[in-house]
């Protein structure tokens, strides 16, 4: 698998990362290098192996349905670049 420059641009846009045109060839080469390295895994036959979704064979631990958190508005809003009263404020995003 090899990524063309259009795909690299698309990945950057989906991740909201700004790319200068001049950076493209270097990133394309780096990404393809990483992909090539990971693709070595395809040499293994895993036909009869269950996919592993975590490093342990444990199942998900569950929590009881209790309200134990919240009412920390000032801490939640403390790092916001902009706020309006008790809300976060962001550049207008309306469909």
């Amino acid at each position: 698998m090899s990524l063309d420059s259009a795909t690299v641009r698309r990945i950057a846009r989906l991740a909201r990362i700004h790319l200068e045109e001049a950076e493209l060839p270097r990133l394309q080469a780096e990404l393809n290098g990483i992909l090539g390295w990971i693709e070595q895994l395809n040499e293994l036959d895993v036909t009869h192996v269950e996919p592993l979704t975590g490093p342990t064979q444990m199942a998900l631990k569950m929590r009881e349905d209790l309200v134990t958190d919240g009412n920390i508005r000032e801490q939640i809003l403390a790092n916001a670049p902009d706020r309006a009263g008790d809300y976060f404020a962001v550049p207008k995003v309306v469909e």
Binding site: A84, D86, Y87, F88, A89, V90, P91, K92, V93, V94
Partner: peptide, 12 residues
């Protein structure tokens, strides 16, 4: 979206 001319307000 209707509280401010250029901003959206977010309640989480």
């Amino acid at each position: 979206h209707d509280q401010h001319p250029t901003k959206s307000y977010i309640d989480l």
